[in-house]
Design a protein around this nucleic acid. Structure first.
Length: 230
DNA sequence: ATCCTGCACA
DNA sequence: TGTGCAGGAT
């Protein structure tokens, strides 16, 4: 009988209690999809703006918004825009009024560091996360994605895809965002490159195979998946 | 409960 | 041309 050690676990069909194995999933995804080299943005600044635009939105729509924003993709230019002007530019991303003000509140915070990313990287990561979360419009997922892809902090991003994939694999999904995040971080060594890849691989896998209606044919995780129904 | 677009599919 | 779906934060 396998031993249940700590952190997340799940029960197999035969009743055996198994420990979650996030490292195993990572290895399999990496082997199948290869290195992803995220985040898909030209600059860290574009990445930060993109992380707000992509809230509740598919990348398709975000790309159009980002195209419109191209001439304004530096802090000073964004600051000069009124909320309404900004809203019109990012219209294709949806929720444009809300997102325009979210970008503005983010810029206010960013300005307290003089838009200086290396300076921000000096800040203790817990303090930094708390600061990001205190910005109106920045929730846990957006905060973590910024920490990871703009500030190089190894952190696990909990998104709808991660929940869906691990749920289907058969894992017990913690209700809270942070519990899930810490569970993964307890098991995967704090290596920036790996966390960077892990999130990207999860997104890729969710788009290629583990979609809303899954395509289990040739899925790289097929042999270890419960294919638990929603 | 609310905020909103673009695309897939019929 | 329409319906329906995907997608976080407050």
């Amino acid at each position: 009988m396998p031993r249940f050690i700590y952190g997340g676990s799940f029960t197999k069909r035969n009743g055996d209690k198994m420990k979650n194995d996030y490292q195993l999933i990572y290895n399999k995804l990496y082997k199948h999809y290869g290195p992803q080299g995220w985040w898909p943005a030209e600059t860290p600044f574009e990445m930060m703006i993109g992380s707000i635009l992509v809230q509740n939105t598919s990348w398709r729509n975000v790309d159009k918004a980002l195209d419109n924003l191209k001439p304004f993709l530096k802090p000073e230019a964004i600051d000069k825009l009124s909320i309404d002007e900004l809203a019109q530019l990012i219209r294709p991303s949806g929720f444009f009024n809300i997102k325009a003000s979210r970008i503005k509140s983010y810029m206010e915070w960013f300005k307290t560091y003089n838009y200086d990313i290396p300076l921000i990287k000096e800040v203790d990561r817990h303090k930094l996360r708390t600061e990001l979360l205190s910005i109106k419009g920045i929730g846990p997922e957006t905060a973590d994605v910024i920490l990871l892809y703009a500030f190089d902090i190894p952190i696990f991003v909990v998104d709808a895809y991660a929940r869906r994939i691990f749920y289907r694999l058969g894992y017990d999904m913690p209700a809270s965002y942070d519990t899930f995040r810490k569970q993964v971080e307890n098991e995967i060594p704090r290596d920036l490159a790996q966390y960077n890849e892990f999130h990207a691989l999860i997104v890729e896998h969710a788009k290629e195979h583990c979609k809303a209606t899954p395509i289990c044919d040739s899925c790289p995780l097929f042999d270890i998946c419960y294919r638990r129904l929603d």
